[in-house]
Every structure is written in C-alpha cells, then in structure tokens.
Design a protein around this nucleic acid. Structure first.
Lengths: 155, 155
DNA sequence: TAGGATTCTTAACCTATGTCAATGCGCACA
DNA sequence: TGTGCGCATTGACATAGGTTAAGAATCCTA
C-alpha cells in the first residue's frame, strides 16, 4: 500500500496498460472512462471520497479504462488483491449494486429518467463536474441532455 | 449452505423480495431479469454452470431482480456473506469484469456489435436460450435483433 | 401427428437521441 | 480590462432502434 497525491488532470492509468491498481480515494475526485473506435469518450465511473476506483478488465488483459483526476486528490494505491482488509466487502458490494442499477437503467430508462436518478443519488457530484461529463456517464450527448432537461420543464 | 434442485421455470426470487440469497450453479442455467413500469422484461444476467447468481440491490432494499431457471438446475444456496470461501474472489472479479464490459458496450456499441460480442463470448448460451432472450440481454427488441442480423448479411 | 403456443421474421411507420453548425456565456489569465 | 477557450444551448436534419401488426416457422404436448 502506498499513499499518493495527485493534481487535477493527472492520469493514473491509460487504456491498454497492464499494471492495473486499485485506488482508494481519501480526498478529491477520480474518473474512469474509455475512448471508443470513433474517438468518443464514455465515462464509466466517478469516485469521490470514500470510494474505490479500479479497472476490472477480464483475464489480465490490457485494461479498457483511462483513470484521471477531476480534482486534486489524495489516494491509497494498492495491488488488486481482494483479501486486503482495507478494500472491504462493503465497498465491493456497493460497487456491484451501483453497477447493477446502472445496467438496468441503461436498458430500461429514458435519458431524462437516468438523469433524474443520477441527480438524486449523487447531488454532490453534480456540483463538481461539468454537465457534459454527466451526459457522458449517462450514455448520451451533452446536446441531448440539454434538450431533455428543457423539454421536461415544458410540462 | 444448502443444495437444491429446481425445474425449468421455477422462480427463486421475485422483485421486491427481501431475503436475497446467492446461488452457485452446479448444473443448468439461471436467469435474472427485471420488469419495468411498462411491463417490459430486461434480462440482467445469465448464469450457467460454474457461475454465481445474485441480486446486488443496494442498502438491503427490496431487490430489483427476478431469478428463475431456464433449465432444470442444481444449485448451492447460501446467504450473502462474501467471506465464504466457496464464493471466491475469482468469481467476484469475473462478475465485475463482465459488468464493466457490459456497461461500456451498452454506452458505446451498436446493437449488432453487442450481439457479435455476445456470440463470441458465450457461444454455449446462444445455443440454449431463445433469441428474444438474447435481445433482451442486449437491451434491444427481438424485432431489432432480427433486423440487424439481416442487415449485416447484406454487406 | 395434429393443433395450439411460442418464436422468428418482415414491413410500415414513429420517436428518442445523435450529428453538425452556429451562437452566446462565463471565467481564467495576459 | 480585454480576449480566448471551454462549456451550454439551440435548431435543422439524420438515423438507430422501438412499435405494431401480420404471417411463417418451430416446438411442445395431447
């Protein structure tokens, strides 16, 4: 285990890397994202204080995700061994719960429903990142998010 | 831990239940799915031999998923305590890897790309379930899957 | 082996969201 | 105190996938 401090914009991991670590966020805000063949960015997860951030690419293949800092951050970095007591089962379970909800919402909810759910669940993050990143997390374009927010207002 | 045998069609868990268990599939095939407000079914996961099946709804809330058997199956059923040696970290990591890939593909790939990926990754499952269930897993309608398969063929 | 149920395909039409381009705003910095 | 840059908004248009309905194929099961 190693404690590290990083600045806003610093990159911790790049898509294709092999030495994937697990980060425990003490202060600040991390983001993981991928870039597809068309060069488009898709945010996979935000990790504010008290969350863990890691890439879980299967089979020790080159990882899929970039990880960078959206704010100056202090982190604990360790190798991915799950038995480590500090990466406790509560955080793993919470992570799986978030992913389950996310998959279900991507499959069954409209853009505006996903947005409302996000704002309700993560009001702090909404304050801390530009709206285009929230759109990216929700799986839509910034233009679409702008539009659906406006449309809802008309009702 | 308890060993149970169930028949095709048997339901192990319903949306809204509280006593969520974790199942280790020894033989057979399970499926988890949700039903949205419009009554539409969305498959969350398949679990063939050697996979685990569980609901990871957050905060001990009523669960989101139905779980049923697509084939006669033999299972090990246990409570959700992660420290149990038999629900090992390999399976947890594999599960998180699958979810990560799933989220990324839902956000960045077209229907036909998701289908091709599924067929490549799970050829056995393709043989064992109707195509409309694969469509449901991919987040599209059976009609759309039928169409995109045909369209690809035209090229 | 027939008959009903389920699944798959196809077609016409619809809608949510993407794409592209233009504009304006707000903020950091010279 | 301007000015440049990233971000948000808006509009016109494009498109992937949804909806509905019908028919064809397949499969259970009596």
């Amino acid at each position: 285990m190693k404690e590290i401090s990083i600045k806003k914009g610093d990159i911790l991991q790049r898509k294709g890397d092999l030495n994937s670590k697990i980060y425990n966020v003490k202060t600040g805000l991390l983001r993981s994202y991928t870039i597809d063949e068309q060069g488009k960015e898709h945010i996979y997860m935000f990790a504010p204080e008290d969350w863990i951030m890691s890439d879980n690419t299967l089979d020790n293949e080159p990882c899929d995700l970039f990880i960078d800092a959206l704010e100056d951050s202090e982190l604990e970095m360790r190798n991915k061994d799950f038995t480590d007591a500090d990466v406790n089962t509560d955080k793993i379970l919470r992570r799986m719960g978030v992913l389950q909800k996310r998959v279900i919402m991507l499959m069954s909810s409209s853009a505006i429903e996903r947005y409302d759910h996000f704002v309700e669940r993560y009001p702090q993050i909404v304050q801390r990142v530009p709206q285009k990143m929230i759109a990216s997390y929700l799986g839509i374009t910034p233009e679409a998010l702008s539009r659906v927010k406006k449309e809802r207002f008309r009702k």
